[in-house]
Design a protein around this nucleic acid. Sequence first.
DNA 1: GTCCCGATTCCCT
DNA 2: GGGAATCGGGACC
Length: 204
Amino acid sequence: MTGLPDPTWQVLPREFYRRHPALVAPELLNKILVRSDGRAARIVEVEAYAGSEDPAAHSFRGRTARTATMFGEAGHLYVYFTYGMHWGSNAVCGEAGEGFGVLLRAAEPLLGVELMRQARPRARRDRDLASGPGKLSQAFGINRDFDGADLVGGDRGIRIASDGTPPPDTPVVGPRIGISRAVEFPWRWHVPGHLHVSVPPRKR
DNA sequence: GTCCCGATTCCCT
DNA sequence: GGGAATCGGGACC
């Protein structure tokens, strides 16, 4: 008994996360974000953020109260608040102290879709439920209370698992979205041709 | 203490 | 394609 919606799914082990986010990120594609209330969605778009190496990372200038989770143990959820209304969800990577993480930018709802619709009353179509970092967090009910949640142990009911689907052989790689610094880092990956990815606003 | 702007989303034109 | 909503983090005085 795994406690997951499907007993054949395997929770990703701690070691999966203990690497550079640019390695972890593309491997998170096609993995599944799971909440214990039955919500599950396939991760189809991610971005890497690399601490002191990365001027666009929240952790670039060192640890603060807000980014403390990012500097902790890999495999935990770093949740941040932005634009006065949106939450973003990241998987902490690397070694403690590095401030590495992978932003979960978009996912395809698989299970618990009705709960996601309730959490996102403004979404017209199901493909709008989690096609962006703020949308994904809202669809799963992720907020400040989930900052620091253990994605491996599932202490707060949020985990990442695999159903055996491998990451795409040739993911789409390109610049990250919504940042103004280090815009040249090609650290955004998504599943090719997927309907549920966020559409990159072409500016900034 | 003040000020700027953000790892965004939604609605209108 | 443009702009509003909304507020906390962090840089700087």
